[in-house]
């Protein structure tokens, strides 16, 4: 009895793992067939949250490695001031805020995507950047200053590809027309700014409130003793 139970458990785990690997591999299809790929990614559940998060983490790791290990000639980073966690956070937070802003805006204007759909699609859209830039970190160490053009062309190619995927991804996830997607890209940025503004206001008010209570406590403590 217990043997079968553990074997079913194993099988379930196995199935889960297979699904994860399959969804990782599916990124390849998304890259080269973005219209089909993004549609199936969310509507047919070909992608998974775990795979998406993997891609996002890989993206963050790439950015950090880029700062640390790109050939000295191609990068001008004041390493003595850089904190890798800060760098990673400064990419992760805008990414999440943009996803959130996109969801909050599109959900009001009959976008079909749920938040997790948007998140998954956006993470898959980051794959070209990671795929090209990560090897470039290594390759850059064999290039000299004169071959800078090669480095920048590949770099910008990866960015263009990723941006293109973001566009197609959002279009397919929400089932929007290209024009509407374009409009909502702008709206998303505005939404993100509003979110940041609200966060700032919230935290500064919170800080004021906290300092008020702290000074109140100090005042009372001072009077009593």
């Amino acid at each position: 009895m217990s043997a079968t139970k553990s074997s079913t458990k194993n099988a379930a785990r196995r199935a889960k793992w297979d699904k994860y690997v399959a969804s990782l591999k599916y990124a390849k299809y998304v890259l080269f067939h973005p219209f089909d790929g993004f549609w199936d990614l969310t509507h047919e559940k070909r992608g998974s949250f775990a795979a998406a998060t993997t891609f996002l983490l890989l993206f963050l790791v790439t950015r950090v490695l880029q700062l640390m290990y790109t050939n000295f000639q191609f990068i001008n980073a004041p390493l003595q001031y850089i904190n890798v966690f800060e760098q990673a956070a400064s990419l992760l937070l805008p990414f999440l805020i943009l996803c959130l802003a996109n969801w909050s805006m599109t959900t009001l204007f009959d976008g079909k995507g749920r938040f997790s759909d948007i998140y998954i699609a956006m993470c898959y859209a980051l794959v070209p950047y990671t795929m090209i830039q990560l090897p470039m970190v290594f390759i850059s160490n064999f290039l000299s200053f004169d071959e800078y053009a090669f480095y920048t062309v590949l770099g910008s190619f990866s960015v263009v590809w990723s941006v293109f995927l973001v566009f197609i991804g959002l279009m397919q996830v929400h089932d929007y027309s290209p024009g509407k997607t374009m409009v909502f890209l702008v709206v998303t940025v505005v939404g993100a700014l509003i979110i940041i503004f609200l966060l700032l206001v919230f935290f500064s008010l919170l800080g004021d409130a906290a300092s008020f209570f702290i000074s109140l406590y100090r005042e009372i403590a001072f009077r009593l003793y």
Binding site: I82, A89, S90, I97, I196, L199, L200, F203, L206
Partner: peptide
């Protein structure tokens, strides 16, 4: 944690690498 979050938000708002 709150402080850390506040810091991150501020950092975000300035959107520039803070150099000493």
């Amino acid at each position: 944690r709150l402080l850390a979050l506040i810091m991150t938000v501020f950092m975000l708002a300035s959107m520039t690498t803070a150099l000493a």
